[in-house]
């Protein structure tokens, strides 16, 4: 039996009928959606106290999300399929001119590849977020995310509402919801799809480490987080393949002198000192 057309499934000839029809649609769930309250997420990471969750969401393939989280918040990204690609930009939520600086994030730690212990640095000598756990090891701070020009060349279409959206197109919308424009989008990083540099400088796509890996960040300042979940620009597959991305966050504590990671490198220690200095002066 053929399913009836959408038009035939709704009685909306009066305001009261339309209201009833709309209200009857509540309470459903789907594969990608935010969970509110966050404690109701069916994908809450093992070992977390659901009551402490402040963010529980499955980001659709080709979707984006964004949130402001408090200093100390722990943010976890899960790639359940091995095909997620979390393109991230982070800002100091109090002064968004302070934002992710990918050059400093690679240069200051003397390390181009992101992993556990790596700071996400701003251009102001502070740590916006720390990578504190990583079971993937396949990330990229070189290629940024796709632009409209790239996706039009590669797939023939880049529309954010289409089947092959560009990451930049989505980040532009996420940024706009916080009063930020194109000029406020610096180079981004991406999680779960690795890139490595060979001796000639060639950038090679590694792809993912497989299904069910995760990365955890600690917000070292009040953080505006923008996330676009789109195919990596160097993904060699002809088709546009991207899986769902789980995002959870819960209340926690910013890095301090008693944490082992605080003093693992002199550059890192001074970056944390700068961050704490700022937070203390602001009364955070």
């Amino acid at each position: 039996m053929a399913l009836s057309a959408p038009r035939d499934q709704h009685t909306t000839d009066t305001v009261l009928n339309a209201r009833s029809d709309a209200r009857a649609q509540g309470g459903q769930s789907t594969e990608w959606m935010p969970y509110l309250p966050a404690s109701s997420s069916p994908f809450a990471p093992a070992g977390t106290d659901p009551a402490s969750l402040v963010w529980g969401e499955v980001v659709a393939p080709g979707g984006y999300t964004h949130k402001v989280v408090a200093r100390g918040t722990r943010i976890r990204f899960d790639d359940p399929t091995g095909n997620a690609c979390a393109n991230l930009v982070v800002y100091n939520a109090l002064e968004p001119t302070e934002r992710l600086n990918v050059a400093d994030t690679q240069k200051i730690p003397w390390q181009a590849y992101l992993g556990a212990g790596h700071p996400l640095l701003s251009g102001d000598g502070r740590v916006l977020a720390s990578i504190v756990a990583d079971t993937s090891g396949r990330h990229d701070a070189f290629c940024g995310t796709s632009t409209d020009a790239w996706n039009e060349r590669k797939y023939g279409d880049s529309r954010p509402e289409g089947p092959t959206p560009s990451g930049r197109g989505l980040l532009v919308k996420a940024a706009a919801k916080h009063g930020l424009g194109r000029r406020d989008l610096p180079p981004s990083i991406s999680l779960f799809q690795g890139v490595r540099v060979d001796s000639d400088g060639q950038l090679g796509w590694q792809g993912s480490a497989g299904a069910r890996t995760y990365v955890e960040l600690v917000a070292e300042l009040p953080l505006l987080v923008l996330v676009a979940n789109v195919a990596h620009p160097l993904d060699p597959r002809t088709d546009y393949v991207v899986g769902p991305l789980h995002v959870h966050a819960w209340r926690g504590r910013a890095t301090g002198p008693t944490d082992a990671r605080f003093g693992t490198a002199p550059e890192l220690e001074r970056a944390y000192l700068n961050t704490i200095d700022y937070a203390e002066a602001r009364g955070l």
Binding site: Q106, A112, L121, G123, G125, R126, F142, E267, R270
Partner: peptide, 20 residues
Amino acid sequence: RHDTIGGACSKESNTLRYGH
């Protein structure tokens, strides 16, 4: 070759790399 990864130096990042 020329570099486009290392970014620019700044007073702030200098404090991380070399000290306050």
